[in-house]
């Protein structure tokens, strides 16, 4: 038995070895991130990087107020210096342009310089249906219905052609995105271009709009009944659609801690980044007061 155990152990070792070799083969001539970090601060280096001063502790909601500062959670794309340089560019842009706090569901007006528009400017008003991207790539989508025609424009948040972003109504919705407005009745996404701004006192909690949207009858862009969406009225579908949705559903995913860890920036990293953001934004506000 003992001999068999040894053999099994040996096999295990071989398998381990193989797996390490495989990784090397996929990424040859490449260093792991930890090694690069070690070399940046190494005493043996010509001019090692200075260790950073301690950052502040940001308020808890900063993660949701400035989501674009959180990097892409995919570990193979992350690099501390790249993120830092990107953040510096973002703060430089924020010294010139005021980028307000807004959420999915808020009503915005964006003024963009456009070489083909009369007056070389274009103003668009709409409801924010999505926010995506990380760092300088971050973007948001506005939706409106103009003359009965649905229109969506995706803006890059740090594009230098943007002249101003104005929040006309600051509020949240029940869902992380509002793509279902494409299949809803037009009244839900029709916003007049002369929409009067609703004042929001600073420091007040952001109201959540509990409106439930009524969709047009099928066909739709997506199978909305299969997504766990809160802001929809009863879809009035035959029972077989819900049955199929139940079959396809993956209710166990909300208990999959590893999946959540992989697909999001963990709390420690986020706290570090947000502390830096908090410090920078306080500096920004001080310079503006002067």
């Amino acid at each position: 038995m003992a001999a068999l155990g040894n053999r099994v152990a040996a096999l295990g070792r071989i398998r381990l070895l193989r797996s390490s070799v495989f990784i090397q083969c996929r990424y040859s001539n490449t260093l792991p991130e930890a090694t690069v970090e070690k070399h940046r601060k190494s005493k043996l280096a010509q001019d090692p990087e200075e260790s950073e001063t301690e950052s502040l502790v940001a308020p808890r909601d900063y993660k949701y107020v400035y989501p674009e500062f959180l990097p892409d959670p995919k570990p193979q794309y992350r690099d501390r210096i790249r993120e830092k340089l990107e953040h510096e560019d973002m703060f430089r842009r924020r010294t010139v342009l005021k980028i307000p706090e807004f959420y999915v569901g808020s009503i915005l007006a964006v003024l963009v310089s456009d070489p083909y528009a009369p007056g070389k400017k274009n103003r668009f008003v709409g409801i924010c249906i999505n926010r995506s991207g990380h760092g300088l790539r971050s973007q948001f989508t506005l939706r409106n219905v103009v003359d009965g025609q649905g229109m969506e424009i995706t803006y890059e948040l740090y594009n230098p052609t943007i002249q101003g972003i104005e929040v006309l109504k600051l509020e949240k919705r029940l869902d992380p995105h509002l793509f279902y407005l494409r299949d809803a009745l037009p009244e839900y996404s029709t916003i007049p271009f002369d929409f009067e701004p609703v004042p929001h006192p600073p420091g007040a909690t952001i109201p959540v709009n509990p409106v439930k949207v009524k969709l047009r009858p099928r066909p739709w862009h997506e199978r909305w009944e299969r997504q766990d969406l809160q802001g929809l009225q009863d879809l009035e579908l035959p029972e077989r659609f819900y049955e199929r949705a139940r079959e396809v559903a993956k209710p166990w995913e909300k208990y999959d801690l590893m999946k959540q860890y992989r697909e999001s920036i963990n709390d420690d990293d986020a706290a570090k980044i947000m502390g830096y953001v908090y410090k920078k934004i306080q500096e920004l506000e001080k310079t503006k007061e002067r």
């Binding site: 794309y77 790249r82 594009n159």
Partner: peptide
């Protein structure tokens, strides 16, 4: 050492992507 890719813009509003390369020690 390759660090990653970020977008940048020209003065006439044209977007392009840059690769960051760090010359380390």
């Amino acid at each position: 050492i390759k660090l990653g890719v970020i977008p940048q813009w020209t003065k006439d509003g044209h977007r392009f992507t840059c690769t960051l390369l760090q010359v380390l020690d």
